[in-house]
């Protein structure tokens, strides 16, 4: 089905792109930090939509569960606990131009990487040929020839971070 020369996928892609980029702009431009974190959640939701369009439903669900359900809420929570941060007067600090340079440079590098095939073939593969099921993903994480090492390293790091958090919380309690 084609509406106004656009396929539904194209319309959905446009919608989620607007959500992602618009949300990101909202984060940067908003003076109110709570609203900023709500915009961040909008942006992350847009990314989840893009994952769906890339036929990666598992990643989309994890994006919603982890980034919106946990990280986004923790951000909002932390911001709420610091009330003085919710009434900022200025939109930019005096170093705004340095971050602008970094962002523009990063953008140029990424665009160059996509347009000029610097890191191998940059032409996207047709989605229908790379559709992987959740089973494939699970196998890839525990298969010795694939991603078992990065997976284990990540688990170790997370465990260490968790233990660290518990230790910090405990010391505080006993004092």
């Amino acid at each position: 089905m084609v509406i106004g020369g656009l396929t539904p996928e194209a319309i959905a892609f446009g919608f989620f792109t607007i959500l992602t980029l618009g949300g990101a702009l909202g984060v940067v431009l908003n003076k109110n930090l709570v609203r900023g974190s709500v915009w961040l959640i909008v942006s992350l939701f847009g990314v989840a939509g893009l994952f769906v369009l890339l036929s990666a439903p598992f990643l989309a669900a994890v994006q919603v569960l982890v980034y919106i359900g946990a990280i986004g809420i923790l951000f909002t929570f932390a911001v709420m606990l610091t009330r003085s941060m919710t009434n900022l007067r200025q939109r930019f600090t005096s170093q705004w131009w340095s971050s602008l340079i970094v962002v523009v440079l990063l953008f140029v590098v990424l665009m160059a990487g996509v347009v000029v095939p610097v890191w191998g073939n940059a032409r996207p593969e047709d989605a229908s040929t790379v559709v992987a099921t959740t089973v494939d993903l699970g196998v890839a994480l525990v298969d010795g020839n694939q991603f078992v090492l990065p997976f284990e390293v990540a688990s170790l790091l997370l465990t260490a971070a968790m233990i660290g958090a518990i230790v910090i919380a405990r010391q505080h309690e006993e004092e």
């Binding site: 959640i41 669900a61 994890v62 919603v64 569960l65 919106i68 359900g69 946990a70 986004g72 809420i73 909002t76």
Partner: peptide, 8 residues
């Protein structure tokens, strides 16, 4: 995943 949005 969807139910966690309710918290928000």
């Amino acid at each position: 995943a969807v139910a966690s949005i309710g918290t928000l």
